[in-house]
Design a protein around this nucleic acid. Structure first.
Lengths: 117, 117
DNA sequence: GACATATGTGCCCATATGGGCATATAATCA
DNA sequence: TGATTATATGCCCATATGGGCACATATGTC
């Protein structure tokens, strides 16, 4: 079984660099597909497909039915992600502490015995 | 071309629910693979593979070479993600405003003309 | 209606993925 | 050394992915 469908999970949706770029561009203001495609130097087709994914997970909204459809940001779906990742905030300062400890150990003993990538 | 390799991008690495669970469990303390596998009710093999990915993107460190290898959190790789997503923070409060505007429009005019999923 | 523009979708392909399973590798102990 | 435990990896498969391309669809304009 491959990974869960992109269209059902915001984590998965923003795993795609292009889609992150799209969201970033949409911070400014709403844009039609062609505009977006031009801005990101991708095919309208590609843009449309990515937007479809973003729409399905609710990170993007469409306004106006017609020749021009304006895509706009709906960032509320990013909130859970921010919260989940934020739950680790205490740990990335702690990492530095641990690293320091480790470096000190290295300097004291000659044999680290330990960390591998 | 499919999506960028999971092993080169933290965004992609945490797109997998199991890996998120692993990271969450590792918040508590370091754990050997079997321990983790038991905690998450997955095969040691599976756990090992996910840990390999997390190791490659640097979200996890291994300590101790031997029968037991302790996996520990290295959350520093989550920081960029937190920052990227945090860049949208202003927008998910704004979303509510826009939604309210939309609802008001709906109540006034009878024809929304607009938002589609 | 005919046409141009804007957007969405279907089909095909190459590729990465996650899981299952068997097996390899590593370390500890009798 | 042989056995046991712990962990990693290789192979295979089903599936989802992203892109290219052609085409369908929708809208606006003449």
């Amino acid at each position: 079984m491959p990974r869960a469908a992109t269209t059902s999970d915001a984590f998965n949706a923003i795993a795609e660099p292009q889609r992150r770029r799209i969201l970033t561009v949409l911070k400014g203001h709403e844009r039609p597909v062609n505009d977006l495609a031009r801005a990101l130097r991708i095919t309208p087709s590609r843009a449309s497909k990515h937007l479809r994914v973003l729409r399905k997970v609710g990170l993007v909204r469409v306004r106006g039915v017609g020749q021009h459809r304006l895509y706009g940001l709906d960032a509320s779906g990013l909130k859970p992600i921010h919260e989940w990742v934020g739950g680790f905030e205490q740990f990335w300062s702690e990492s530095f502490d641990r690293l320091n400890e480790y470096v000190q150990e290295l300097q004291q003993k000659e044999n680290p015995g330990g960390i591998r990538s």
